[in-house]
Design a protein around this nucleic acid. Structure first.
Length: 485
RNA sequence: GCUCCUGUCGUCUAGUCUGGUCUAGGACGCCAGGUUCUCAUCCUGGUAACUCGGGUUCAAAUCCCGACAGGAGCGCCA
């Protein structure tokens, strides 16, 4: 066991976002690679926006992906509690300390005043920061003010003229000027901490050694560093991950399409495919390899191989990869995976039919090479559950006439009639091939296939008939003939 | 506006640290061909990129400088 400890700290204000999942994934991989610990902490100090149902969504999504935490609200450890809302006492102690040491102070500007100041600064092309004249207010006087006024906040007394530097494991040296920070806010009240403050308290008390988070946090880092210094905490190692972008190169969000892990789950992506895909978004092994199991990823992962620039979430590549993972499944595994999707599909079609598992397994195996997402399974295989509906024009191969079509269907009918229900696709194919000889196979096979499936794209007629059986096949051919008579 | 980060095929990326073997490699996509009644799978081939401008050097995707472009942040959100 190494002394590496990393964490992911989502806020339960929405469903588990793929960006958050990717950050969790990298933290997890890093921790496991170094035999360290991975902590899941919930940042729910913003009570109004936080919601238990989202917290559950986060747990569920992470669990589904196979990213399990060593310590979390669900699995307590020595550094708990793991919800910020349950750690108020801890924060309070440190806020009070900063106040007592006069490194933090009460600011009594109203929101309106602050807003006006910001507008003015922006108009004058200055950075919109707040340098507060209350920073030197006598604590006793301030205490009196807090009784009388309701509009106040606690700010950090940012030192001026400081160059704040840190080493980022991905980006190298990064530096900021403290004068551009202003007297930033750290808490609304002694017992209501704000993000930048709560994070550093948590990271210190949870003994986090490496802070691996999204690039959007780079500009929070100098503020946190100042607080860490003021409190005499240990500085963790930082690594800022590139962002996941939408097709327009801006930060991935709902408007770019599905952005939450559970949406991908519902669409029928496999967890190992999403895991693999997300790992490759901003990281690579340094060679041409693209398929990795979780175990292999843990073995290969290193922060040095993490990309600096943002990566677009390319759904077509995910689809391809998901298809690859689907193709690797055994028939039995795939059956199990497809079952809930099939059940949903049948329910939506108001169908009450019950299908035998061994029958289903054959059907699913047939569609396996075509399947990109599990949710497609119902629509792709529906002709196995009930007679297809289709436009009669679809039956015609090239510019076949009606009489030619009937002749074609009857020829097929004749061949099939020689068989009895447990048939093998090889046998029936052989019979057809013998009949067709050197002729155009489409003339007979296309109408047959459409009669069977009602689709312009499907598996071959022989394999379908093998599953469907002779009687049902003949029934469908008869129905096709009816359409043209 | 200010600060920070980033810039290799449409997309994910290798190569950059340690300059030459890079007429820039792989994958997805797309296109064409083969297999095939159709679709998918499978196989073969093709398409397409070092942001620009200077400099250093015998030699630059690679080092330096400068432009430009894109992104993120600048909350009493996290």
């Amino acid at each position: 066991m190494s002394n590496i400890r990393v964490r992911i700290a989502p806020s339960p204000t929405g469903p588990l976002h793929v960006g958050t999942a990717r950050t969790a994934l990298f933290n997890y991989l890093f921790a496991r690679h170094h035999d360290g610990k991975f902590i899941l902490r919930i940042e729910d100090t913003d009570l109004e926006r936080s919601d238990k149902k989202y917290e559950e969504d986060i747990f569920e999504g992470l669990r589904w992906l196979g990213i399990e935490a060593d310590e979390s609200p669900e699995c307590s450890g020595p550094h708990g509690p793991y919800r910020q809302s349950e750690r108020i006492k801890i924060y309070k102690k440190y806020i009070q300390k900063l106040l007592d040491e006069r490194r933090a102070f009460y600011c009594f500007h109203s929101k309106k005043e602050l807003e006006e100041e910001k507008e003015k600064l922006l108009a004058a092309k200055h950075p919109p920061i707040h340098l507060c004249e209350y920073r030197t207010l006598d604590p006793a006087e301030a205490a009196m003010f807090t009784q009388a006024k309701s509009d106040y906040i606690i700010r950090f007394k940012t030192p001026s003229g400081r160059k704040i530097e840190f080493q980022d494991l991905i980006r190298g040296d990064v530096s900021f000027d403290s004068d551009l920070l202003g007297d930033f806010s750290i808490a609304k009240r002694v017992d209501v901490p704000l993000y930048n403050f709560a994070v550093i308290i948590d990271d210190e008390t949870m003994e986090i050694s490496h802070v691996i988070r999204g690039e959007d946090h780079i500009s929070n880092t100098p503020k946190q560093l100042l607080l860490i210094e003021a409190l005499g905490f240990k500085i963790p190692q930082y690594a800022h991950l590139p962002l996941i972008l939408g097709s327009d190169r801006s930060k991935l969000s709902k408007r770019h399409g599905p952005a939450s892990v559970n949406e991908y789950r519902a669409a029928g992506y496999l967890p190992e495919a999403l895991f693999n895909f997300l790992a490759l978004l901003g990281w690579n092994s340094g060679n041409d390899r693209e398929f990795f199991s979780k175990k292999e990823l843990i073995k290969e992962f290193s922060l040095e191989k993490v990309q600096k620039s943002g990566a677009i979430f390319d759904i077509t590549k995910l689809d391809w990869m998901n298809g690859e993972y689907i193709r690797k499944k055994s028939a039995k595994e795939l059956l199990e995976l497809c079952q809930p999707f099939l059940a949903d599909f049948l329910q939506n079609q108001n169908s009450k039919i019950k299908i035998q598992n061994d029958y289903l397994e054959k059907i699913i195996k047939l569609e396996q090479p075509r399947l990109k997402k599990l949710a497609e399974i119902g629509e792709r295989t529906e002709y196995f559950f009930w007679a297809p509906e289709y436009d009669k024009e679809l039956l015609c191969w090239k510019n076949m006439s009606d009489t030619e079509l009937i002749a074609s269907l009857e020829a097929a009918e004749k061949i099939i009639s020689n068989f009895q229900t447990p048939i093998s696709k090889e046998k029936i194919e052989e019979a057809f091939l013998k009949e067709i000889g050197e002729g155009d196979k489409g003339r007979i096979l296309w109408p047959l296939r459409v009669a069977l499936t009602g689709k312009k794209a499907s598996p071959g007629p022989f394999e379908i008939m093998e599953i469907l059986g002779i009687e049902e096949s003949l029934r469908r051919i008869a129905a096709a003939k009816q359409k043209k008579m």
